[in-house]
């Protein structure tokens, strides 16, 4: 029962922060709300006994959303939201798409017969070991590919973003 309550609480927090992201006109608040949503998702992982993933989520998202915040401040005309600029378009269609997607996903969640639900999971120590073995054995190729992908994307991002010398 306790995990269910925690999942519901963290889920409600995630949804509330997620809505706040697109409601506020202050960009820093917006990025920090997204951090709140992501941290609440991390809390859900902890409630679902995936301790490693939860802690990793809490750690990674704090830096990622802080970086989001500084890019917002760099590239927005009104990062403080004091001018009350409207920065949205096609509101109605977007809202409809969001609601339809939610309803479809909820319908799938409710209609599918999920079969028996597992009651117990391994302790975290066992989980960490098993995840490590999974990464180093069966998913090794996948993990290597992911590593190379992130390296390539870093190089590509820097190559795209680097300042070029003006032509003489």
């Amino acid at each position: 029962m306790m995990p269910t309550i925690f999942i519901a609480l963290f889920g409600a927090a995630a949804i509330w922060f997620g809505v706040r992201v697109f409601q506020t006109s202050s960009m820093v608040r917006s990025a920090l709300s997204l951090l709140g949503a992501m941290a609440a998702i991390g809390g859900m992982f902890l409630a679902m006994e995936a301790e490693f993933l939860g802690v990793l989520q809490l750690m990674m998202m704090a830096t990622e959303m802080s970086i989001m915040a500084i890019f917002m401040v760099m590239y927005m005309m009104d990062p403080g939201g004091l001018g009350q600029m409207d920065m949205s378009h096609q509101q109605r269609e977007a809202l409809a798409a969001g609601i339809v997607a939610t309803l479809l996903a909820v319908a799938v969640a409710l209609l599918v017969n999920w079969g028996t639900v597992a009651k117990e999971v391994d302790s975290t120590t066992v989980q960490l070991r098993a995840l490590g073995i999974e990464i180093m054995e069966r998913s090794m190729l996948l993990f290597e590919t992911v590593g190379v992908t992130i390296l390539v994307s870093m190089i590509a991002a820097i190559a795209v973003a680097v300042a070029r010398e003006p032509k003489r």
Binding site: T4, I7, A8, G11, A14, I15, G18, V19, V21, F22, M27, S30, A37, I41, M44, M48, M68, F71, M72, Y75, M76, M87, S88, H89, Q90, Q91, E93, A94, L95, A97, G98, I99, A101, T102, A105, V106, A109, L110, W114
Partner: peptide
């Protein structure tokens, strides 16, 4: 099912945001 519904709502909010915002970072 509770967790899946939370996931579905978050997905819907994200889709709404991605479609309705005009700024790249948003």
């Amino acid at each position: 099912i509770l967790a899946l519904i939370i996931g579905a709502v978050l997905f819907g909010i994200g889709l709404y945001g991605a479609l309705s915002q005009t700024n790249l970072v948003m």
